[in-house]
Simulated scan of single mutants.
Amino acid sequence: MNAIENPLVTAYLAAVERETAVLPVDRRAELLADLREHIEVSETDDEDRLRQVLAELGDPRTVAASALAEEPPVPATAPAAPATAPAAPAGHGTRTRLTVGLLAGAGILVLLNSYVGTLALIAGLVLLWTSGHWGTRPKVIATAACAAVPVALLLGAFLLAGGRLGAVELLVIAATSLLVPILGAVALLRAARR
């Protein structure tokens, strides 16, 4: 049996390989080849002499530390961006509830007090469009649904002033002012859950 096949040498080289795992593969292979060559050059089968050769090479940790010290410094990489915290369950955030509530209630608020209703509508739309929670399509649908309230009221006021509006038309305008924003809010909630 030659020196390289000896269990002492095999264990020694395996320990050096483990300790140098952070070295580039080619550099580690070169180091292990150099160690094997040094051991082979000793041309000994005597276990005592083999132990002495391995001791002269040094402890595997010392050999690894020397090899690592000879390596050029690895360029520092930018720290990885921290993982973003998972979003709160869709549709459950305070901002989401506030946005949906303002948009759903805008219709009735406009009917009760046009100033308060208009402010609620504007606030809801601002919250909606500045939120990253929804995509463009749900935002457009909700905006169109909520914009139906002032359009219906303006149309109703115009027709009422012309004397062309009766009780049924007023009920249709009131129902539109209440239901369409609620439908828009429901669409937002569904989009938030996806």
Rank of each mutant, 00 (worst) to 15 (best):
L35M: 14
L35H: 12
E37R: 15
E43F: 13
T44F: 08
T44P: 08
T44I: 08
D45T: 14
D46N: 15
D48C: 03
R49F: 11
L50I: 14
A55V: 12
D59A: 09
P60G: 00
V63D: 04
S66A: 14
S66N: 11
A67C: 11
L68D: 01
E70R: 13
E71G: 06
P72A: 02
P72H: 02
P73Q: 08
V74L: 11
V74Y: 05
A76F: 15
P79H: 09
A80T: 12
A80M: 10
A81F: 12
P82F: 10
A83W: 03
P86K: 02
A90T: 09
H92S: 14
H92V: 08
T94V: 13
T94E: 01
T96R: 00
R97K: 15
R97Y: 09
L98N: 01
L98W: 14
L98F: 13
G101Q: 01
A106C: 14
A106E: 08
G107A: 02
I108G: 09
I108L: 09
S114Y: 09
S114V: 15
Y115E: 04
G124D: 06
L125F: 08
L125E: 12
T130M: 12
S131K: 00
G132C: 02
P138G: 07
K139N: 05
I141H: 02
A142F: 06
T143H: 07
T143W: 12
T143E: 00
C146A: 07
A147T: 03
V151P: 04
L153D: 00
L153A: 02
L154K: 01
L155A: 08
G156R: 04
G156H: 04
L159H: 08
L160H: 04
A161N: 01
R164K: 08
L165E: 05
G166S: 01
G166P: 08
